[in-house]
Design a binder for these strands. Structure first.
Length: 596
RNA sequence: CGGGCCGUAGCGCAGUUGGUAGCGCACCUGCUUUGGGAGCAGGGGGUCGGAGGUUCAAGUCCUCCCGGCCCGACCA
C-alpha cells in the first residue's frame, strides 16, 4: 500500500502568530471526535515546582502551556483550543457591538511612536531594535499609533463616523517581572478595540456600549468581575474603567463600599476623611524623641495616637523636582494620586541626598523650614490641629504643628490611599478591599493621539477636527488563566461549557472491550456535532479519570460496567454527580446538557 | 533594580567529612493486571546551568556569569 499523507483539513497556515483563531470557535471541527491516543496532551502527575498560582500550576500540569522563557509561553493543542474559545466569544461580542476586525503589525517603525511622543515617554518596557538598514523599530506594546495612522489616511469625513475597529493580536511588553503563568507575561495576545467619533456624545454612546459588551463577554466566559474606576496611566485618557476578576492571587486591589455601589482601583480610590477634632492651636514645642524614626515609634514614645501625627514622604519628579508629601500618620501615601495632583508623569522615590539638600531630615522630617521642595499636603493634615511632626533635627520632633500657622503647603490635594475600614467617599459607610486580576479595561482617550498625530475629519461645514477616540482592551490569555483561577478544585480545572476546549470526554473503562457500545456512543456524538475528546489510550481507567478531571472537561461519558445492558454514565465534572443513561436517551440527554 | 530561595534525566527530588551519579514518576520491551495516578522483570536516557580557579581528585569548596521562582519597587 502506498504511503499517503492526509491533507490538513483547514489547509495552509492561515493562523499566524500561533494564537490567532480567525474563525469562531472551530466551526470547521464541529462534530469532531479527537482520539486522545493521537493527541498531544502531556499531563504531569506532579505539580511543576516553580508554579505558585492555581492557574499556572494547572495549565502546565494539564498540558495546556509550556514555558519558553521568562514571561513567554507556548500553547499546546489544548491550550490553543481554550484560548480560541475565549477569542471566539470576544470576536462574536465585538462583532455584535458593531466592531470590524482588522490586523495591525506587531513590528513597527519608530516614526509613529515619535509622532505621538511615546517613543521617548515610554521606558524600557518597550522592546526596541534596529533593522538591517539601521532604522529604529519596536515591538508593539499597544496599537494606538498604528490604528490612528491607518484611520487618518482613509477616513476624512464625519459621515464615516463613528467607526469601531478591533483586532486580536500579539503584544510585547518587557515587564520587569513576569509571573504567575499566563496571568502576567511579556508576550501576550490581546483583543484591542479603538473607536473614532465626531462628538463626545458619540464616544459616550460607544463607551457605554463597550461597557455592556464587556459585561456580556465576562459573563459568557464564566468570570465574576467588578467594574471599577481606574487610572488612565500612560494611555493618557480622561475616564477609564477596569474589569477586575476577584481572586486571592490578584495583583490589583479594589476598594469598594459594602453599602452603596462605589468601587475603584486602589490607585485612584478616594475616601472620606474623619471630621477633625476642634481644638485651640497650642504653641509649637520641640521635644526629644531619640531613635524614633517611624510613626509607630514616635506615637508610642509620646503616647499620642498615630492619627495625631504627620507623616512625611519624599518623591522626585522630572518636572517638579523634590516633592514633600505630608499626610496623617495613620494613612499611606498613594503615589498615583500624588502624581496626578502634581500633573507629574515621572515620579520616583527621592534619594536621601536630595532630601537632605532641602533641609529635611529623613525620620524627623517636617515641612517647616524646608526649601526647594514642592510641599503637597493631604487635607487630613490641614484640618487636624496640634499634630506631631518632625523637627528636621536628628532625634527631635515638634508638637502642636498647625497648618497654615506653621507651614504653608504649595498644594493641598487628596494623596492618602483609601483602604479597608476607611469611610466611603460617597456614603460614609465602611470600605472593603478585594484582591483581583484586571481582565479588561476601557478608556476614553479623547484627542490625545489624534491631535498629536494630526488625524482629522471634516465636519459638515468643512472644518477639520481631530478624531475623538476610545480604546478597549481584553487580554485573551489572561482571561483564560483567570477562568482557571475562578474555576478549579483539588483535582483540577472546572471549565464552564462556554470556554471548555472540549465539551465532553468519553472514557471507555476498557477501550475496545465493548465495541458495539462504543460505536453507538460515537454515532450519537457525531450526530450531535459535539466537540469530543475520546480517551482510547491503553491506560488504566483510574489514570484516565484523573486526567479527565485535571483538564476540566465539563462532562465525562464512561462506557463501563453496564455497557452490556445498554447503559453509560454521564458524570458532571463540577458537581461530580453521575447519571446512568441508556443508549436510546443518550442523544437527547447530551443535547440538553450542551444547550445550557 | 533591591531582598530571599533555587538550578543534578522529560517531571518531582536525594546526593554525608571532596573519591568518578542515584530514587520515584514518565519513556521502551515482556508478562500479570485493569472503575480513581497497578505489580514484577529487563532496558534507554546526564556536557550535574555556564566559565574560570583550588585539589592527585569537584555535583560537592572559591570567584564571576547566565537562567528560574517568590516578595518588594515598577507597569496596564
Amino acid at each position: 500500500m502506498p504511503k499517503c499523507y492526509p491533507t490538513h483539513p483547514t489547509g495552509g497556515s492561515h493562523r499566524f502568530g500561533g494564537h490567532d483563531g480567525r474563525k469562531d470557535s472551530f466551526p470547521e471541527e464541529t462534530g469532531m471526535i479527537q482520539r486522545l491516543s493521537r493527541y498531544f496532551l502531556p499531563t504531569l502527575r506532579e505539580d511543576p515546582a516553580e508554579a505558585e498560582l492555581p492557574s499556572h500550576r494547572l495549565l502546565v500540569r494539564g498540558g495546556f502551556i509550556r514555558p519558553v522563557g521568562s514571561g513567554i509561553y507556548s500553547l499546546l493543542p489544548l491550550g490553543q483550543r481554550l484560548v480560541a474559545r475565549v477569542e471566539g466569544i470576544l470576536r462574536e461580542e465585538m462583532n455584535r457591538a458593531g466592531g470590524l476586525e482588522v490586523s495591525l503589525p506587531v513590528t513597527q517603525p519608530a516614526e509613529l511612536w515619535k509622532e505621538s511622543g511615546r517613543w521617548d515617554a515610554v521606558g524600557p518596557e518597550m522592546l526596541r531594535f534596529r533593522d538591517r538598514g539601521g532604522r529604529d523599530m519596536c515591538l508593539a506594546m499597544t496599537h494606538e499609533e498604528t490604528i490612528v495612522d491607518l484611520v487618518r489616511r482613509d477616513v476624512k469625513s464625519y459621515r464615516q463616523l463613528p467607526l469601531l475597529l478591533y483586532q486580536i493580536q500579539t503584544k510585547f511588553r518587557d515587564e520587569p517581572r513576569s509571573r504567575g503563568g499566563l496571568i502576567r507575561v511579556r508576550e501576550f495576545t490581546m483583543k484591542d478595540a479603538y473607536s473614532f467619533h465626531d462628538s463626545e456624545d458619540s464616544l459616550e454612546e460607544y463607551y457605554r456600549r463597550m461597557y455592556d459588551t464587556y459585561e456580556r463577554i465576562f459573563e459568557r466566559c464564566g468570570l465574576e468581575t467588578i467594574v471599577v474606576e481606574s487610572d488612565p496611566g500612560m494611555m493618557g485618557g480622561k475616564i477609564a474603567h477596569e474589569f477586575i476578576a476577584p481572586s486571592p492571587f490578584g495583583e490589583d486591589t479594589v476598594i469598594r463600599c459594602s453599602s452603596c455601589n462605589y468601587s475603584a482601583n486602589r490607585q485612584v480610590a478616594r475616601f472620606r476623611r474623619e471630621t477633625p477634632p476642634s481644638e485651640d492651636c497650642l504653641p509649637l514645642e520641640e521635644v526629644a524623641t531619640p531613635n524614633c524614626e517611624t510613626i509607630e515609634e514616635v506615637a508610642a514614645f509620646l503616647g499620642v495616637p498615630k492619627s495625631r501625627t504627620a507623616k512625611a514622604v519624599f518623591f522626585h519628579g522630572k518636572k517638579t523636582g523634590l516633592v514633600f508629601g505630608i499626610l496623617r500618620g495613620d494613612y499611606e501615601v498613594n503615589e498615583t494620586l500624588l502624581a496626578a495632583a502634581l500633573k507629574e508623569p515621572n515620579l520616583r522615590p527621592a534619594h536621601p541626598e536630595e532630601i537632605l539638600a532641602s533641609g529635611a531630615v529623613p525620620g524627623y522630617a517636617s515641612p517647616i523650614g524646608v526649601r526647594g521642595a514642592t510641599v503637597v499636603a493631604d487635607p487630613s493634615v490641614v484640618e487636624v490641629p496640634n499634630l506631631v511632626s518632625g523637627a528636621n533635627r536628628e532625634g527631635f520632633h515638634l508638637k502642636n504643628v498647625n497648618c497654615p500657622r506653621d507651614f504653608q503647603p504649595d498644594l493641598v490635594a487628596e494623596i492618602a490611599a483609601a483602604d479597608a475600614g476607611l469611610a466611603c467617599v460617597e456614603c460614609g459607610h465602611q470600605l472593603e478591599a478585594v484582591r483581583g486580576i484586571e481582565v479588561g479595561n476601557i478608556f476614553k482617550l479623547g484627542t490625545r493621539y489624534s491631535a498629536a498625530m494630526n488625524a482629522c475629519y471634516q465636519d459638515a461645514s468643512g472644518k477639520e477636527h481631530p478624531f475623538i477616540m476610545g480604546c478597549y482592551g481584553i487580554g485573551s490569555g489572561r482571561v483564560a488563566a483567570t477562568i482557571v483561577e475562578q474555576h478549579h478544585d483539588k483535582d483540577g480545572i472546572l471549565f464552564p461549557l462556554s470556554v471548555a476546549p472540549f465539551s465532553l470526554i468519553v472514557v471507555p473503562a476498557k477501550p475496545g472491550a465493548e465495541p458495539e457500545a462504543e460505536e453507538k456512543v460515537e454515532n450519537t456524538l457525531k450526530s450531535l456535532a459535539a466537540e469530543v475528546l475520546w480517551d482510547d489510550r491503553d491506560l488504566r481507567a483510574g489514570v484516565r479519570f484523573k486526567d479527565a478531571d485535571l483538564i476540566g472537561i465539563p462532562y465525562r461519558i464512561t462506557i463501563g460496567r453496564r455497557a452490556k445492558d445498554g447503559i453509560v454514565e454521564i458524570r458532571k465534572r463540577d458537581t461530580g454527580e453521575v447519571e446512568e443513561v441508556s443508549f436510546e436517551n443518550l442523544g437527547d440527554h447530551i443535547a440538553t446538557l450542551l444547550r445550557d
